[in-house]
Design a protein around this nucleic acid. Structure first.
Lengths: 186, 186
DNA sequence: TAGTAATTTCTGTAATTACAGAACTCATTA
DNA sequence: TAATGAGTTCTGTAATTACAGAAATTACTA
């Protein structure tokens, strides 16, 4: 009988859950998923589906599907609670780790398919001698760009978080390090 | 009387437009908008709304709204064509520039609102002495993270494209430059 | 093996979003 | 000032997506 989440501190916390929920809209995640994620992110102990359902007032089935999606993004994971048959879930709370999981998911869902789609186009273009050279060039540039970004993403995902943090904190100072090679640009 | 786009090379090009259109779905852009963007991206000369409408078979009104949205993202711009009263549009074709415009838009629409939403929560949390310290900590970490990313984004947006390109091409090699400070991480 | 709790999948409905076509506005020219 | 062309806004419908509740499945317990 897991203790139901104490709601006495609901205000700031539940406000966070609500905000996060409809920001999900902007981010392309539906409200239920985003709310559940927020709730788990702020929960100090793992929650089961039933608790989440009651806490957020959303249907049990919806919770089930949303949890599946969050697990798919690796933003939450199943936590076995000894002596309790029900599945419990808790969220990744390291924000950097979280960001990297999301980045990984986006790479797979957004960039990779784009690259392969453009590859198809370029293949077909190769069979069209009459294609306008400028059109071909633009497709190629897009392809090259996406490939660069993809590779970069892939590399960054394997960089330890602390280094990433450092890198970002340095921000554009990093640029000066490169300026040794000092080409004029734009 | 602007010459209508020659469709003889339609296949690879129109395939690109179609692909791009439904990849828009993944990226959170609707099909019409994405298709129009793709079409303009591959067009060597500016197009007017009527041409776009006919070429893609979408309603004139829809084209009008979509163009407005693309202009809002600064991915296309109005091009006055001398001797033609109609408005013509052409897309940014520099892929780096394009990416930066999108990044800028996302920063404004996704990150900035998130930061201010969390600020609200933290403000409210400050008035709740009973709040669980761990909950507070997590909110703060999220806030700090988003702020770091936001600042970083802001700085990167002002870096010349060629440097960005270089930076990405170097990828994780950049990390080694920092390793001088050589902390062990994770 | 029957019974029950937990979870998932299915089915229909509600809500949202995308879109076409019509109506309208504004500018231009006759 | 009427007539025409371009562009936008409005209105209703279609398509999609989100979701609740029911039915079905799976896992455990007696």
């Amino acid at each position: 009988m897991t203790e139901i989440l104490d709601i006495s501190d609901a205000s700031a916390k539940s406000q966070f859950v609500l905000y996060w929920g409809d920001m999900g809209g902007q981010w392309g995640v539906n409200r239920s998923v985003a709310q559940i994620h927020a709730l788990l992110f702020l929960s100090v102990s793992p929650l089961n589906a039933e608790q989440i359902s009651r806490e957020l007032g959303i249907a049990r089935s919806n919770v089930s599907n949303s949890l599946k999606e969050l697990v798919g993004w690796k933003l939450i994971r199943r936590i076995p609670v000894p002596g309790d048959r029900r599945e419990h879930f808790s969220a990744e709370t390291d924000v950097w780790e979280m960001a990297m999981r999301i980045a990984q998911g986006r790479k797979e869902r957004e960039i990779d398919p784009a690259i392969s789609a453009i590859s198809d186009c370029l293949e077909k273009a190769a069979t069209e001698p009459e294609i306008h050279p400028e059109v071909l060039k633009r497709m190629q540039e897009m392809q090259a760009f996406l490939t660069t970004v993809d590779t970069w993403y892939g590399q960054m995902l394997n960089v330890p978080k602390s280094k990433l943090n450092l890198l970002m904190k340095m921000g554009n100072k990093v640029i000066s390090l490169l300026t040794l090679t000092g080409k004029k640009s734009e």
